[in-house]
Amino acid sequence: MGGLERNARTRIGRRFDELRHAGDLGLVAYITAGDPSLDATSRIVLAAAEAGADVVELGVPFSDPLADGPVIQRASERALKSGATLSGVLDLVRTIRQQSQVPLVLFTYFNPVIQLGLDTFATRAQSAGADGALVTDLPPEDSADYRAALRSRGLDTIFLAAPTTGDERMRLIASVSSGFLYVISRTGVTGERDALAEELPALLRRARAATALPLAVGFGISMPGHVSVLGGLADAAVVGSALVAEVERACSADEAASNVAARIRVLKQAGLRGMSRREAAAAERGSET
């Protein structure tokens, strides 16, 4: 299938292929870059990869993070205070890439990308070793130039689908996405919640019907129980605020790295148990026909 061939170009696509073969639920870890410093982020990301994170999203701090809850808002403020910029985060990608092959996604608001320039952003991201990007406030309709810039450098363009997204629009979003489709689990901003939305299974079935791309589910996922119920419904869980909160609580970069790693190990274990080998094999056969 076209979608899967396209995926195979980046580390993201290859990692999801491996996960499907093994029948494991993947874990995508979001970390705000520059919180509390870019050097600390580098150590945290390497520890996360070591602990089993399948993809790492590097959050680019922005002064007006209107899609984020309080935890990531505070992290963005700390990162900006420490002097982090999009340009600095691209340098961070290069540093991480010298030490790890973990798939890396730049997770950003649109304005810093516009100011750097779409072509400069794409060129530098590709040369630093990033695999894709996700722009929170860029809907597919206004994204043609952005997609052209990224795709021509072999970078994945990941878009979001939401519970309010209808079936027709879901197909539109999937058609401009590569790498994976990020499914927002519930209406709201980022942040931890006790329970997953009741409507989530139906949403994931609609997303699955719209695309063969891997589905990664985010917003409100922090506990092993959340992750294990996603088995069979999605390809990966995205954990963000729970990890960022570990960084916020830690007294040093080393403590942050080791606490984030511990959290990832627990969540990754839950994912491994969540999807049986038989379901994975069925999914694999399904995608081949």
């Binding site: 929170t136 406030d137 809907p139 206004d142 878009f159 689908a161 939401a162 997204t165």
Partner: peptide, 12 residues
């Protein structure tokens, strides 16, 4: 102009 909003808000 345009419509630069998080996906959740697009259909509403």
């Amino acid at each position: 102009g345009g419509r630069y909003v998080p996906e959740t808000l697009v259909e509403p």
